[in-house]
Amino acid sequence: MLLRLVVWTILAFLVAPLIIIVLFSFHASASLSFPFTGFSLRWYQEIFGNTQLAGAVTKSLIIAFFTALITLVLGASASLGWLRLDRIGRAVIEAMSVTPIALPGLFVGVSLLVLFAQAGIRLSTLTIVISHVVIALPILIVAMKARLALFDPSLEEAARDLGASQRQTFARVTLPLIAPTLISSAILAFAVSFDEFVVTSFVAGTETTLPMYIWSMMRRTVTPMVNAISTLVLLFSVAILLGAWLIGRLRRQSAISARAEP
C-alpha cells in the first residue's frame, strides 16, 4: 500500500539520524564516515574519565529533578482547581499555559533574562530551575487538561453521595484517578528540563548544564565522543519515555477514560 510506504519512509527519515549517531559512537576510529572500521568502547571510556562532563550531568539531573518537583506540585494544584473552575477560570489557565508553548525559546529566554537583571537576581542554578518551570508547567497543564476533560465530575459527586467527606473524596477518588497522569507528566517535565538548551543559555550565568556542555563540545570538535554522550542521552530519553509509558499503562490510568459510552 502506497500510504504505508510513504509513512515508513518518513519514519525512517526521523529515526535514521539517531541510528547513525548510535552506530558511530561505537566506531573504533575517530572518523565519522563510512567505511566503518570496527567496534570499540573507547569513546565511552573517555566519557567516564571526564569530570567536567560528570559535573554537567549532575547539575542537569539536579535541575531536572527540582523542575519536575515544582511543576508537579503547581500542576497538580492547578489541575484540581481546573476541575472546579467555570469556563472563564479555565480560559485564564489555558491562555497562560498555551502561550509559552507557542513562543520560541528565544523569546522566553531573553524576557526571563531581563526580569532577572531588572530584579537584581544573580544567574544561578535557581534561575535555571525557575526558567525551566516556565517551560515545563505549560506542557504539564496541556497534558493534564486533555486527561481531565475525560474526568467525569459526577465521580466526585457519587463519592459524596455515598457518604465520603470532601477529604475522603479527594483521597479515595480524585487523587487515585489523576495521579498516573500527573506522574507521567512530571516525568515529561523532567525530560524537557534535562534537554533544555535555548532558554538555559540565557539564564545559566556561569553554570554548565549537560546540553550546554554538549554545545561547547560540538562547537570545538567533531568526535565520536559526542556520539557516545548523545547515545547515552538518547538512551536516557528512551528510559524516561518508557517510564512514562509504563505508568500510563497502569490499569488505573486506562480506566479514567472508561466512562460508559452513550
Binding site: 539517531l18 546540553p211 554538549i214 554545545w215 548523545s230 542521552v233 538518547l234 530519553s237
Partner: peptide, 8 residues
C-alpha cells in the same frame, strides 16, 4: 535531544 539531532 535537540542538540543531538543538530549534531547528527
Amino acid at each position: 535531544s535537540y542538540l543531538v539531532r543538530i549534531y547528527a
